[in-house]
Amino acid sequence: MFEKSRHSIANGIISALVLGCGIAMSVMISVLVKKEIKFIDDVLSQIDGGYITPSFVSLPVWIFGLAYIVPGVMGTISAFARYKCLYIVHMVFSILTLLVMGIFLIIAIIAVGALASAPPTSCVQTGNVCTCHNSYTDDIKYDCDLMSNIRGLGVGVSVMMVFGWIFTLTSTILSGILACRRENIQGVQMQNMPSKAYIH
């Protein structure tokens, strides 16, 4: 019983960490998209005054954090309730999260690799302004700090995805252990007592 309780507590703590990774990821993705939109607006306004705003602006991109928030909440609840069906439901949601976020993790690592690459040789930094020379259009200027912030947020989102994935995997294993463990049935056991002979 003690070991089962210990596994439940560990599952609750790790599920809370999954929840924290999901919330942090949602916040960072929201900020990242706002900064990317600002960067795109700054660059495209110099190329053509009549550009179209990107279509992903209206999408609730922070929703990607729910992939970790949902199993995190379910794992925390199951750690307190300790019902076998909750462990099974949590395990199923966690497995789906591992599959989906594994794909997005690969995409995020590729995107961070692209962001981390050095700027083109045609770009020159003067103070806080980066100027890129181009044979097709006039020089394009943008805020170098803004690009650094975008890179940093991209790395941060990827790190949260990695930690969230690892914590979700651990939580899934613990839920599987708790769901498959046999319950100790405690009750009253009846035993036949030998009859006593009385001598009169």
Rank of each mutant, 00 (worst) to 15 (best):
residue 122 S to F: 01
residue 100 V to C: 02
residue 76 T to Y: 03
residue 63 I to V: 09
residue 100 V to T: 00
residue 113 G to N: 05
residue 115 L to G: 01
residue 59 L to Q: 14
residue 101 M to I: 07
residue 66 L to S: 06
residue 81 A to N: 11
residue 48 D to K: 09
residue 107 I to R: 13
residue 102 G to S: 04
residue 73 V to I: 01
residue 97 T to Q: 01
residue 99 L to R: 10
residue 114 A to M: 08
residue 91 M to C: 13
residue 67 A to S: 08
residue 119 P to T: 10
residue 92 V to H: 11
residue 56 F to A: 11
residue 48 D to Q: 09
residue 68 Y to N: 08
residue 100 V to E: 03
residue 115 L to S: 04
residue 122 S to H: 03
residue 62 W to Q: 15
residue 82 R to C: 13
residue 56 F to C: 09
residue 88 I to K: 08
residue 50 G to R: 00
residue 106 I to Y: 02
residue 111 A to L: 00
residue 49 G to R: 07
residue 54 P to D: 03
residue 57 V to R: 06
residue 93 F to A: 05
residue 103 I to M: 02
residue 107 I to A: 04
residue 117 S to L: 01
residue 82 R to Y: 14
residue 126 T to P: 01
residue 78 S to I: 08
residue 121 T to A: 09
residue 122 S to A: 05
residue 54 P to V: 01
residue 74 M to T: 00
residue 67 A to K: 08
residue 97 T to E: 00
residue 45 S to P: 09
residue 85 C to W: 06
residue 79 A to V: 05
residue 72 G to K: 08
residue 46 Q to I: 02
residue 83 Y to W: 14
residue 77 I to T: 01
residue 67 A to C: 12
residue 113 G to F: 10
residue 99 L to T: 08
residue 58 S to T: 13
residue 60 P to R: 09
residue 47 I to A: 14
residue 120 P to G: 08
residue 64 F to G: 14
residue 91 M to R: 10
residue 86 L to P: 10
residue 96 L to H: 09
residue 100 V to F: 02
residue 126 T to Y: 01
residue 103 I to N: 04
residue 120 P to I: 10
residue 92 V to N: 11
residue 90 H to M: 07
residue 113 G to C: 07
residue 56 F to E: 13
residue 54 P to H: 10
residue 51 Y to L: 07
residue 118 A to Y: 12
residue 46 Q to E: 14
residue 50 G to W: 04
residue 76 T to V: 02
residue 90 H to F: 08
residue 51 Y to C: 09
residue 122 S to Y: 11
residue 64 F to C: 15
residue 89 V to I: 14
residue 118 A to W: 13
residue 87 Y to Q: 09
residue 121 T to Y: 11
residue 98 L to M: 13
residue 104 F to Y: 14
residue 114 A to R: 10
residue 63 I to Q: 15
residue 93 F to R: 05
residue 94 S to F: 12
residue 72 G to N: 04
residue 53 T to D: 07
residue 107 I to C: 08
residue 63 I to F: 11
residue 52 I to M: 11
residue 109 I to K: 10
residue 56 F to I: 15
residue 117 S to W: 01
residue 114 A to K: 06
residue 103 I to A: 02
residue 55 S to K: 13
residue 78 S to L: 01
residue 112 V to M: 07
residue 65 G to Q: 11
residue 115 L to Q: 12
residue 71 P to V: 00
residue 93 F to W: 10
residue 89 V to T: 14
residue 82 R to G: 08
residue 63 I to C: 11
residue 74 M to G: 03
residue 80 F to P: 05
residue 76 T to W: 01
residue 85 C to N: 03
residue 60 P to H: 15
residue 107 I to V: 09
residue 55 S to H: 12
residue 48 D to H: 05
residue 53 T to R: 05
residue 110 I to E: 03
residue 92 V to F: 10
residue 103 I to P: 10
residue 78 S to G: 11
residue 48 D to M: 14
residue 123 C to N: 15
residue 100 V to S: 01
residue 80 F to H: 03
residue 72 G to P: 00
residue 65 G to C: 15
residue 100 V to M: 03
residue 76 T to S: 02
residue 94 S to I: 05
residue 68 Y to H: 14
residue 75 G to H: 00
residue 68 Y to E: 06
residue 49 G to W: 08
residue 84 K to T: 12
residue 46 Q to K: 05
residue 89 V to F: 14
residue 122 S to P: 04
residue 48 D to E: 13
residue 72 G to D: 00
residue 108 A to Q: 11
residue 108 A to I: 03
residue 91 M to E: 14
residue 85 C to D: 05
residue 109 I to L: 12
residue 94 S to Q: 12
residue 57 V to P: 01
residue 73 V to P: 02
residue 110 I to P: 13
residue 85 C to Y: 09
